[in-house]
């Protein structure tokens, strides 16, 4: 490793985009940002007037773009940090950020193996950074995204994922509520879903799975059962814990 120290930087909020009624994308301007890889995350530190401070980690939603760093924050009910970030923080406000963090759950644009992305809920965020990094680099590496959600209203990046992006296939799965006329009944991720929406194991794809713990356990177990190499399955788990 390079031994570069991760310093706290002052990040100014320059843009807000609503993704769903309970999630929004925050674009920060961070002077001297060193750049990052798709899939990495940052630490945010908030400090109250009495000196109390707390930190959380958030995945970065887009590839490196100069000093701009995009995060998508899901509001966790009763959370300490996510309601502040997703409701209170306004354009022009500042927070402290350090990063990038995490050198494992990353996709590099020079990767040539086909890629399978499996997202549960807000686990889409670091995977969207990979999709955007692929597009930004003009990569022809074939990508497939299997995106599991409770209901259509919870989709992040819906407009962007609807636009044609040659070489990227997107499959939505709904666990509770499906759109009118949707063939697949609501339900949790199954072998059939990853058989249809993923790659055969003999294509030796790089698999990235991100979502709540139970979802990631299920998806990784299915991929192993389908014959994918455990070493080719990278996972990132999170819970609503603490928020």
């Amino acid at each position: 490793m390079n031994g570069r120290r991760l310093v706290w930087r002052i990040a100014r909020l320059v843009e807000i985009r609503d993704e769903t009624p309970s999630a929004r994308t925050l674009v920060f301007q961070i002077p001297d940002w060193p750049g990052h890889l798709a899939g990495q995350h940052v630490d945010i530190r908030l400090t109250a007037e009495d000196g109390y401070s707390t930190q959380r980690s958030y995945s970065i939603a887009a590839p490196a773009d100069g000093e701009r760093v995009e995060l998508t924050i899901q509001r966790v009910p009763d959370g300490e940090v996510s309601p502040y970030l997703s409701e209170e923080l306004a354009v022009g406000d500042e927070v402290e950020i350090r990063g990038p963090v995490g050198g494992w759950f990353v996709w590099r644009p020079d990767g040539t193996a086909p890629v399978l992305l499996v997202a549960g809920g807000s686990g889409i965020v670091p995977l969207m950074a990979m999709i955007r990094a692929r597009r930004q680099a003009g990569s022809r590496t074939p990508f497939r995204l299997v995106y599991s959600l409770r209901e259509p209203g919870e989709r992040y990046y819906a407009g962007e994922l609807r636009r044609p992006d040659p070489g990227l296939d997107v499959t939505y799965l709904y666990t509770r509520v499906v759109p009118d006329g949707w063939a697949r009944p609501p339900g949790r991720l199954t072998v059939a879903d990853l058989n249809t929406g993923g790659w055969p194991a003999d294509f030796t794809p790089a698999c990235y799975v991100c979502g709540p713990t139970g979802f990631v356990e299920t998806a990784a177990d299915i991929l192993l059962a389908m014959g994918h190499d455990a070493r080719a399955i990278k996972t990132e788990r999170f819970g609503p814990t603490g928020g």
Binding site: T54, Q55, F105, A220, D221, L224, I233, T235, G239
Partner: peptide
């Protein structure tokens, strides 16, 4: 930013927050 009510009885390492469930973190299956 106000944060949660401070629990003076609990001393945590810097930058940590308290949870009551048991999150899972690992890099693969």
């Amino acid at each position: 930013f106000h944060g949660r009510p401070r629990d003076e009885g609990v001393k945590l390492p810097p930058g940590q927050y308290l949870v009551h469930d048991f999150p899972v973190l690992s890099a693969g299956p």
